[in-house]
Simulated scan of single mutants.
Amino acid sequence: MPTTRTTDQSPTWCRRSFLSDRTGTSTQTMGHALLIQFSGVPFDRTMTSFVSTAQKTRTAYHA
């Protein structure tokens, strides 16, 4: 499962995960477009592609 991770080292940050059952290109683009609306909020962004089962969703969520 490919994963892309961007981390801000600030003391307070928000975790946002984007899961997709395919390559995740549309999911990642939409997620980025939404998150840039909150420029003052640091965040940890995780993109996980090819999540096709409930077990993979749980694993990705708890990673």
Rank of each mutant, 00 (worst) to 15 (best):
T29V: 10
Q37S: 09
T57P: 01
P2W: 06
R22D: 13
H62F: 13
L35A: 12
D44R: 08
T57I: 11
T12L: 10
T12V: 12
H32L: 05
D44W: 07
S52M: 08
V51I: 13
T27Y: 02
R22E: 12
Q28K: 11
T23C: 15
M30E: 09
P11N: 10
T29S: 09
R58C: 07
C14E: 00
F43Y: 14
P11Q: 09
Q55C: 00
T48M: 06
D8R: 06
S39T: 09
L34W: 09
S26M: 12
T7I: 14
A33M: 13
S20Q: 03
T4G: 07
T4D: 12
Q9G: 08
Q28V: 09
S39L: 06
G31E: 02
T12H: 10
T46V: 13
R16W: 12
M30Y: 13
C14H: 00
S49H: 05
L19F: 15
T3Y: 08
F38I: 00
S39E: 12
L34N: 02
A63E: 15
T27N: 05
S39G: 12
S17E: 08
Q9T: 14
S52L: 05
L19W: 11
I36P: 00
T53N: 03
M30L: 15
M47Y: 12
T23R: 13
